Simulated scan of single mutants.
Amino acid sequence: MKISHYFEFEDHVTGGIRESVAHQRKMLDRLDLRYTTEPTLDADVFHCNLMGPRSVWYARRARSRGVPVVAHTHVTAEDFGDSFRFTNTLAKPLKPYLERAYGLADALVCPSAYNRRLLETYTDVPTTVISNGVDREKLDGFESLETEYRDRYDLEPPTVFLVGHVIKRKGLETFVELARRLPEVDFAWFGPLDRSLKGRETTRLIEESPDNCTFTGYVEDIRGAYAAGDIFCFPTHEENEGIALLEAMTVGKPVLVRDIETFDWLEDGEDCLKVSTSESVSVSGSGSGSESGVDAFVSALERLEDPAVRRRLGSNAAERSEEFSLDAVANRYQSLYEAVI
């Protein structure tokens, strides 16, 4: 079996999609499956990770030649908005484009049950849920970086933290407002800032954040983020799965999430804390505004001040994360490829 495992715009796309592709290729290596990263129809399966125009071109030709097409559904119109500059404008026409593009596949790979439910409104192509997984080996030895990264960013425990691109959709307003409400607590968001790609509102939120809210920008060793952080606070409004969440769970950090459909698989009070909030948001530039529901996040963080609560939730989270290891996920790819062939 030979797979054309293609990632269009590979040199430009970062974040969760890039991590997912890296995980997939590690799993293919473990399965000892032959694959090329070039788009080619000289393969048993054409697997595309981003349905750009070149991927669509190859998918059309693959179908005409009888080569089965597998497409990953990393991108939806729902999670495209409130990301980078112009994405809100593009989100509306994106859905009909993706409906046609995903419709070219013989099978769709959805990273979560929530993502699959969304895709069922796009096309009737068969779907399979396969987690992006978590690369546990990548996180080995994270503890050794605690002092270095706490000192570098002047962070005192318990630090509330988040990992990933700084974008509004991931709950930027909530994160900043929490830091403003809890001035005695350090907040740190580890991840690329890419200011040239940010919208005006996102830039304002970053620039006007309180002193106890640190935006680190890109960090060369992501293990440092998990070493320096104590409470993983993920107030995202929309997510297909969330690799950073799985990583935080893997290293035993207690996680606090917004109670959205994506996280239905998490059990509140057992392997996380969930916060139910209104989606209505209003944060003033003067720092005196408020976000509906932010009080619930404050209350949850106050519960997590107790080290015993953090240890219990973190331990349960680590145990739950084992089902997302690359070893646990890998065989699902082999089964999928055999099925489409």
Rank of each mutant, 00 (worst) to 15 (best):
E137L: 05
A105P: 10
I222G: 00
G217A: 11
R312G: 06
D211E: 15
D211F: 01
L155Y: 04
G217L: 10
T174F: 13
P254G: 07
G191E: 07
V67C: 08
Y114E: 12
S335P: 00
D135M: 05
S321E: 08
L155A: 10
L104G: 05
F175S: 06
L246F: 04
V75D: 09
T202H: 08
D230L: 02
R181M: 10
T87R: 02
E247C: 08
S4N: 09
D79C: 12
M27K: 12
P183T: 09
P68Q: 07
E338T: 14
D32F: 03
E323C: 00
S131L: 04
D79V: 14
F161N: 07
L33E: 10
E156M: 00
S112D: 04
D259A: 11
P96R: 10
Q334H: 13
H5G: 04
L162P: 00
A339N: 14
T37H: 00
V13P: 05
R180Q: 13
A300D: 12
P68K: 08
S131P: 06
D79K: 09
A308D: 15
F84Q: 10
V163A: 09
P126Y: 08
T236K: 01
T121Q: 14
Y102V: 09
D186F: 01
V160K: 07
S315V: 02
D140K: 13
R85M: 11
V185Q: 15
N115A: 15
V281G: 00
E173R: 13
D221S: 03
F80A: 10
N331A: 11
G199N: 15
S4R: 05
S144F: 01
D42C: 02
Y58R: 10
D268W: 00
S55F: 01
V166D: 09
G269W: 02
I231A: 04
E143G: 05
T236F: 01
V160H: 06
G52N: 07
E322K: 14
A105R: 06
S335N: 13
V163M: 08
E38R: 13
V13A: 01
L326P: 03
D194Q: 14
R195N: 04
S292T: 13
N331S: 15
Y218T: 14
L273G: 01
A113N: 04
R181W: 02
R258S: 09
L104C: 08
A318M: 09
L98I: 05
A296H: 15
V129N: 03
T214G: 00
G224K: 03
V109N: 05
E270H: 11
L266C: 02
A59S: 15
Y226E: 05
E99S: 08
L304N: 06
F9N: 14
E323A: 08
T89E: 14
T159K: 03
P39Y: 11
K253N: 04
R204Y: 07
V255P: 08
T89R: 14
P96Y: 06
G224Q: 03
E302M: 10
E201L: 13
G289F: 00
G81N: 06
L273P: 00
V275Q: 09
D44H: 07
S321Y: 01
D11C: 01
L139R: 06
R65A: 15
D32I: 01
F190P: 02
L301M: 10
S64L: 13
E220P: 01
H72R: 13
S112V: 07
K274M: 07
R320C: 00
A91W: 04
E99W: 00
E208I: 01
R85D: 12
I167K: 12
F80V: 03
G217T: 07
S4D: 11
